[in-house]
Amino acid sequence: MTRKLSYAEALLEATHQEMAHDPSVVVLGMGVDDFRGIYGTTKGLAETFGPERCFDTPLSEDAMTGVAIGAALGGMRPIHVHIRMDFVLLCMNQLLNIAAKARYMYGASVSVPIVVRSVIGRSWGQGAQHSQGLHSLFMHVPGLKVVAPSTPYDAKGCLVQAIRDNNPVMFVEHRMLHFQRGTVPEHLYALPFGHARVLSPGTDVTIVGISYMAVESLRAQSLLAEVGISAEVIDPVSLLPLDVDTIAASVAKTGRLLIVDTAWTSCGATAEIVTAVFERLGGRSVPFRRLGYAAAPCPTTKNLENLYYPTPATIAQAAHSLVRGDKQPWQPRSVEAPEVVEFKGPF
């Protein structure tokens, strides 16, 4: 099976197949039924399944989240799509106070099987309010699940699982991932959460790349190979629940840990993963580094934006210093991600 799809096509196929398979699956969100169809990820669903099962929403993120939850209480499996994760901040009350708690707070009388898809933007002037990776906010809250797959294969399997899951699932997509291509089986399959994926094995340092940073970490791995360093790149895929075992086993093997996030590091996923790994290793710590957004809102101008994100070069450099120490400075060649260079927006 070598059929290749883009990440965006994989999301559409997962949604289309699940909607065909289960009449309770509905899709809602601003623009889900328009001619762009959220980068093609919802394109044609309204035409195929009708306007009741795929519908545009007013600009009412708070209430529409409540509507999705209420529909789930009424027997639906809604997928609520946000073209930017920044908009999910308008949904926090419903997500944290109702969705995350309903199962527990109502004594197991109900469940809330909703999927909240949201896209982290980047580049070409997305700026402070179109580029935030806010997944760690949701990792804090019991009752939610958070997944951020990086490959088209995992995107399809995780979205199917998210739809079938009986709990609220935050499905985090990075805009730059939509262009990634990879092998995706045509049949329906679900990938259970809580399983990290070793994208590429290595022996000297473990690099955990979250969401799009998994792609950038693989590029860093190539740079490191040029100087004889073997990096193991892991995509956690599922952030809550987190597969601590796989990451800790890798760290036990390599003795070094670098975690790269498409988000800030403070109180973030990187902090949680480091802590969870060291706890799993019985309190033993190993040399580690964290990389993420610069501790500022995202600027729009290109030269500052270039400094804002971890890049293959900065990732490779951080891994290099973990392995060889800071006394052997190394300047890897600059690798610009083609999807970032080619991206011309607007969204």
């Binding site: 708070d62 409540g66 509507v67 939850i69 209420g70 529909a71 209480l73 009424g74 809604p78």
Partner: peptide, 8 residues
């Protein structure tokens, strides 16, 4: 909104 969603 939960009521509205349930109605949907």
């Amino acid at each position: 909104p939960l009521a509205v969603g349930y109605a949907y």
